[in-house]
């Protein structure tokens, strides 16, 4: 292990929501909505968020660009200071417990190989910074809210970090840092991130959705399931489900 040669000029790009953590940007927004100083306003915001979920879902299905425009409008009027301060609480209360068990280990393996670590996420940059610090990654590329006089306008700064733009951003990042994309890795859970997988030499599907899993199988890309605790590898059980459940139940009992 000591003599392990390092990859030079390589980077690993990680999508975050669904790839490294179990939650997504709507959870983060719901957290902010529920933390309003006024109890009544807090309750109202929470209900509003819940009612908006079908709209967000439909917009996301149609276009990630529409989704961003509709979704981030909800942040309009929020103060920058407040969002940044609450991001630490958001990380501790919401993100940290939802990091996939093997995400940190994957990043450590990659770092040990000498690869530069980069988070590339459609979430907001201030919500990603505590996570980046926790995981020890080198860079964060994330969406940025537009602020005027310290208050959010509800619009995102361009370019939006989503879909094909992620691939463009990665190309620009590679050029800027002399990274060889052919010797780089990309990890994502979603078919919508296909472009970011397509521009690197080592694409890897992490906890993939059905479409990406199928694509990964077709292209022979490795598939990682970071949700599976290493000591409980139960993915392949030939004896049917009943013994599997028994073993799982027994092994999950406290010692």
């Amino acid at each position: 292990m000591k003599n392990q040669p390092k990859y030079k000029n390589s980077a690993a790009f990680y999508d975050v929501d669904g790839t490294l953590i179990k939650i997504n940007i709507v959870h983060a927004f719901a957290f902010y909505a529920s933390r309003h100083p006024s109890l009544f306003k807090s309750a109202t915001n929470t209900v509003k968020t819940a009612l908006s979920l079908p709209v967000f879902w439909a917009a996301d299905k149609l276009s990630r660009k529409w989704f961003n425009e509709i979704f981030y409008r909800s942040y309009e009027g929020a103060s920058e200071d407040r969002l940044v301060v609450l991001s630490e609480e958001l990380f501790a209360d919401v993100i940290l417990p939802n990091i996939y068990p093997r995400a940190r280990q994957l990043i450590e393996e990659s770092r040990r190989a000498g690869v530069r670590q980069v988070l590339i996420s459609g979430a907001l940059d201030f919500t990603m910074r505590p996570l980046a610090r926790h995981l020890g990654v080198d860079d964060v590329i994330a969406n940025q809210l537009e602020f005027v006089d310290n208050y959010a306008t509800g619009k995102l700064k361009k370019p939006f970090v989503a879909g094909a733009t992620k691939a463009d951003i990665m190309r620009a990042y590679a050029k800027q840092h002399a990274i060889d994309l052919a010797e780089s890795w990309a990890y994502t859970d979603s078919f919508s991130d296909y472009p970011m997988l397509a521009v690197v030499g080592h694409p890897t599907a992490c906890n993939p959705d059905l479409r990406l899993r199928s694509l990964a199988r077709s292209y022979d890309w490795p598939v990682l399931d970071l949700d599976e605790a290493p000591e409980r590898s139960v993915a392949r059980r030939p004896q049917g489900l009943a013994p599997a459940r028994r073993i799982r139940a027994r092994s999950s009992q406290p010692e």
Binding site: L106, E109, S110, P222, P230, A235
Partner: peptide, 18 residues
């Protein structure tokens, strides 16, 4: 050989997958 051996995805899959 070394490229495959040091690929972090494969190391992760060896160490914590099957």
């Amino acid at each position: 050989q070394d490229e495959l051996a040091y690929n972090p995805s494969y190391i992760e899959m060896y160490r914590r997958g099957n």
